[in-house]
């Protein structure tokens, strides 16, 4: 396990080392493209704020009312059957729908149960490994005016469900 951790600690420095090399031997001024990208990053983070503001409030209401605990209790048999923590349900319901909402529910989980709790770790792996499938499907297909999508949606949903279960198994193994 420690070997994996040791290896993991190399990944981010390697990327920055690569970027540093690119900065050092320039054919053109790459720092300006860094600045451009960073500006875009701030813009997209900033544009997320209004959505986040509304959804963070509603997620806070959801957990403060006690409804989230109540629902987790009800869904316990389902989550036991699938071997996933029941507190993760609000997150996996919003993840396929919208990027902003899933960030809000993800942060809700971290805020309530702690960033290093098992639920938060599972949510982190799901967050990074899957995308907003309904959004991707609608954008890709509507742009090319496809109406009959055949097995695309069931396939995407199946892969997402597999991702949820598999990430919980992985977190169980790793941490």
């Amino acid at each position: 396990m420690t070997k994996i951790e040791y290896f993991s600690s190399f990944i981010l420095p390697c990327v920055i080392f690569l970027a540093g090399i690119i900065f050092l031997f320039p054919k053109k001024d790459y720092f300006s493209s860094f600045i451009y990208g960073a500006k875009e990053g701030i813009k997209s983070g900033w544009s997320l704020l209004p959505t986040m503001c509304a959804l963070t409030v509603s997620i806070s209401i959801f957990s403060a009312s006690g409804l989230s605990d109540f629902l987790s209790k009800i869904l316990n048999p389902v989550s036991d059957f699938l071997h996933i923590p029941s507190e993760i349900f609000p997150f996996i319901l919003t993840k396929p729908l919208s990027g902003g909402a899933s960030v809000a529910t993800y942060e809700g989980i971290i805020d309530t149960y702690g960033a290093d709790s098992f639920v938060a770790l599972c949510a982190s792996v799901i967050m990074a490994s899957s995308d907003t499938i309904f959004y991707v499907l609608s954008v890709y297909f509507s742009e090319s005016r496809i109406k009959k999508t055949y097995y695309a949606l069931p396939c995407a949903v199946f892969v997402f469900l597999f991702c949820v279960i598999f990430s919980c198994i992985l977190c169980d193994l790793f941490f």
């Binding site: 970027a19 990208g37 983070g45 503001c53 959804l55 509603s58």
Partner: peptide
């Protein structure tokens, strides 16, 4: 809730800017 969303977004802006910049260089 509302003020929390601002503090989180602000603390996230730094890493979003940095990684987006690095990816843009690549």
């Amino acid at each position: 809730g509302a003020s929390k969303s601002v503090t989180i977004t602000l603390s996230l802006l730094g890493s979003m800017a940095f990684w987006n910049g690095i990816l843009n260089v690549l």
